[in-house]
Simulated scan of single mutants.
Amino acid sequence: MMEKYQLTPVEHELMEIIWKLGQGTVRDVIACLHPTRHLAYTSVSTILRILQQKNILKAVKAGKQHIYQPLLSKETYAAHSVKNMVKQVFAGDSVNLVAYLVNKNDLSLDDIQAIQTLLESKKKELGK
């Protein structure tokens, strides 16, 4: 996939807000920031314009404001990010990623059952 899906931490933070809202102005995004997160109006505006230049957002003019709408879905970004991580961190082997997640996380019996259910469903989907 293309480099355009690379987001900085602050770009990702603002995209999470836009994905949640569906669309929003700079003020809408600021209103959704965590109360301890202080970003200036101009900073948020600049970051949203950068995301627009990356073709991750589009801006629709509404009076004196712009309403930002996602061009990149969260699902597409997640798929790209996970594929990229598997490629870079786990040498392209998804089994190594799953093994890492299972072995390095405190999973409850409910978590393990949910994972088994997902795997059984996938087996049926593949006809095995």
Score class of each variant (00 low, 15 high):
residue 1 M to Q: 13
residue 1 M to I: 12
residue 1 M to R: 13
residue 2 M to S: 14
residue 5 Y to T: 07
residue 6 Q to Y: 15
residue 7 L to P: 02
residue 9 P to R: 14
residue 11 E to V: 11
residue 11 E to G: 11
residue 17 I to D: 11
residue 19 W to F: 00
residue 19 W to M: 03
residue 20 K to Y: 11
residue 21 L to D: 01
residue 22 G to V: 09
residue 22 G to W: 10
residue 25 T to F: 11
residue 26 V to E: 11
residue 27 R to P: 04
residue 34 H to Y: 12
residue 35 P to H: 04
residue 38 H to N: 13
residue 44 V to Q: 01
residue 44 V to G: 02
residue 45 S to G: 10
residue 45 S to P: 00
residue 46 T to N: 05
residue 48 L to H: 00
residue 48 L to A: 01
residue 50 I to T: 06
residue 51 L to G: 05
residue 55 N to K: 15
residue 56 I to P: 06
residue 56 I to E: 03
residue 56 I to R: 13
residue 59 A to S: 07
residue 60 V to I: 15
residue 61 K to S: 03
residue 62 A to P: 00
residue 64 K to I: 10
residue 65 Q to R: 14
residue 66 H to Q: 02
residue 67 I to T: 04
residue 68 Y to Q: 04
residue 73 S to N: 06
residue 74 K to I: 02
residue 76 T to I: 09
residue 76 T to P: 00
residue 76 T to H: 02
residue 79 A to L: 12
residue 80 H to P: 03
residue 81 S to Y: 15
residue 82 V to N: 05
residue 83 K to M: 15
residue 84 N to E: 06
residue 86 V to Q: 01
residue 87 K to G: 10
residue 92 G to M: 11
residue 94 S to Y: 12
residue 95 V to H: 03
residue 96 N to L: 15
residue 96 N to V: 12
residue 98 V to L: 15
residue 98 V to Y: 06
residue 100 Y to Q: 13
residue 100 Y to N: 13
residue 101 L to F: 14
residue 101 L to H: 07
residue 102 V to R: 05
residue 102 V to W: 06
residue 103 N to P: 07
residue 105 N to M: 09
residue 106 D to W: 00
residue 108 S to N: 07
residue 108 S to H: 04
residue 111 D to L: 08
residue 113 Q to L: 06
residue 114 A to G: 09
residue 116 Q to M: 05
residue 116 Q to P: 02
residue 116 Q to T: 05
residue 117 T to R: 08
residue 121 S to R: 07
residue 121 S to T: 04
residue 124 K to F: 09
residue 125 E to N: 02
